[in-house]
């Protein structure tokens, strides 16, 4: 890194950009090679894509069959829930694609692979997050994307800068929130051995919750998946706001704009747990 600072160009902006590119090089190198290696096993990759696609399709079908039995659920109709599903599932899929492999932390811990990360000059969490990318989940994301596009097409939306901004904010912060969930779950694996099922209840249960109309939840559920794990912010609340639907108890529609706050909260929790987890692993003060 020293050579870099010395080789600074005349304009500071250029240097910063160069520094950033060099700083990102390690992560890019790992990710590019992971992607290449996955795509190179053609037959397996194709089958992985199919199963990932099927999984997302079935998740959509689970929502759809309910609306086949009744027309309106929690104040929403199927075309409206499509928007909730599209937003939440796309955000989840993208987070899963990028950092879903944090689920593998118990394996890394048992095999001692984590020690190897300590020997490299990058932050530990960033190394773990960028140690892999699961391309087959692109197939999953495509289902969410199609649902979102369909939802946007069939609903009566007052298009404007506000609506577009709301969508972008909701999707980006939903994605960040789900990513934080994966990191949070990974961090707890430092303490829980064989306890992944417990955290899965909130990560994958969170995804399931995020695609539901939050208006049907009981109060404890609203507390857990509405706020503590802010799942309602990924799809339901932005949809209420976007379609100008009546707000259920405890969940006013202005919360639809609060996705970034939810993401911030989720990340604060994730980083705190990560910090504790690493401390526990290194044995400092424990």
């Amino acid at each position: 890194m020293i050579f870099l600072r010395r080789s600074g160009g005349p304009r500071p902006g250029v240097t910063d950009e160069l520094a950033l590119r060099v700083r990102l090089r390690p992560y890019r190198a790992v990710l590019a090679s992971r992607a290449r290696s996955q795509a190179s096993y053609r037959a397996n990759f194709a089958l992985d894509l199919v199963s990932s696609f099927l999984a997302a399709l079935v998740e959509l079908a689970e929502v759809w069959v309910l609306f086949h039995a009744v027309t309106r659920l929690g104040g929403l109709e199927f075309h409206q829930i499509l928007l909730v599903f599209g937003l939440a599932d796309l955000a989840f899929s993208l987070a899963d694609l990028a950092v879903g492999h944090c689920d593998n932390l118990p394996t890394y811990l048992r095999a001692g692979t984590l020690d190897v990360f300590y020997l490299r000059p990058q932050p530990l969490l960033l190394q773990l997050a960028t140690s892999d990318i699961t391309l087959r989940r692109l197939a999953r994301a495509s289902v969410g994307l199609v649902a979102l596009i369909a939802g946007l097409a069939v609903n009566d939306i007052a298009w404007g800068v506000g609506a577009v901004a709301l969508l972008v904010v909701a999707l980006a912060s939903g994605c960040a929130t789900f990513a934080a969930m994966f990191v949070w779950a990974g961090a707890l694996q430092f303490f829980l051995i064989d306890g992944a099922e417990m955290t899965n209840a909130f990560v994958y249960g969170g995804r399931y919750a995020a695609t539901q109309p939050a208006s049907v939840w009981s109060r404890p559920l609203k507390a857990v998946f509405g706020f503590f794990f802010p799942m309602a912010f990924a799809g339901f609340l932005p949809t209420l706001r976007l379609l100008d639907l009546p707000a259920p108890a405890w969940l006013p529609t202005w919360l639809g704009w609060c996705g970034p706050l939810a993401a911030l909260w989720a990340w604060a929790m994730a980083l705190l747990c990560w910090h504790w987890g690493v401390r526990h692993y290194r044995g400092g003060g424990g």
């Binding site: 051995i193 909130f202 049907v216």
Partner: peptide, 29 residues
């Protein structure tokens, strides 16, 4: 044992989510 405890938490959580949405379905019908 810990895995079983984790499973318990998971199954209860999913159970409560199912209650919410399926009871709403029954009521809506």
């Amino acid at each position: 044992r810990l895995a079983a405890l984790g499973g318990l938490v998971a199954n209860t959580t999913f159970g409560l989510l199912k209650v919410a949405v399926l009871f709403a379905t029954v009521r809506a019908a």
